[in-house]
Amino acid sequence: MKPLLKVTRQGVHASVQDYGRFGYRAQGIPVSGVMDRYSYELGNQILNNEANAACLEIFVGGFEFEALSNHTYVLTGAVGDYYLNGEVLESWKSFRVKKGDILSLKSAVEGSILYLIPRGGLNVELVLKSRSSYPLANIGESINVGSILYGSEVEPLPNMRGLMGDYRPKFDTVVQVRVYKGPHFELFTNESVERFLTHSFQYIGGNRMGYYFKGEGLLLQEKKEIISEATQFGTIQVPSSGEPIVLMADAQTVGGYPIIGTVHEDDLSKLTQLRTFGSVMFHLMEEGD
């Protein structure tokens, strides 16, 4: 255990995450794990980490850290105003931090979620085979002022590494995502289905459990009690308000709202990076695509 960073200022929300906790959904335990898998994977590749190395996932920014030891890191995900001892820090490139340095992640500007990844990953206890936090069930520790993040002693990277601009994901304010028909797709009115697939829906807020969208209501042909069934990261639920909720990485394992569709796994990353008042358009996939 090597102490890496001490939190000296806290922002909206940060948590330790890896790929997620698999194999426990039948017991009601969500998968959790990173929201933007793509940025996370690339970050670990830049540092030559194991694919499942744990990182700190930060919403929007607002965090400041004091370095407790020399170590190498990378920032991926949202691009923003980030500083090391007051100097502008570029994300998507590895960087070295010396003991006593101040790392300030002020605010995301493009995208909403950033990943702070140390070489070798964060060292936290495995709970049910994963390092991902799930606060609702008291799994993992909350990250507040005074929290210390630990890593491991690892061979330093021989060279600084990074990803060239063209290869970095773009974070748009309007995202297009592919969806599969949900189990209750046929229960919606024709007009609702058409609206769902041709209109955009505005992101009005959310968290690791779900993103809320505003738009013209999606209505069932007739009122119907839905029998609860399995849900996942990407499930698009429609409560009686008619406004869709997309379940996110901490998705509850079962839900009782009508499910109009499910977002294609490969399109989840860009959806998670939406900023408030950004919007999404859903495009129907055919079975077997």
Binding site: F22, G23, Y24, R25, A26, P183, I227, S228, E229, A230, Q232, T253, V254
Partner: peptide, 14 residues
């Protein structure tokens, strides 16, 4: 498979 979730009348297979 990674896992399955059995419901009231559904079985979801990951």
């Amino acid at each position: 498979i990674i896992e399955t979730v059995a419901g009231y009348y559904t079985i979801t297979v990951y």
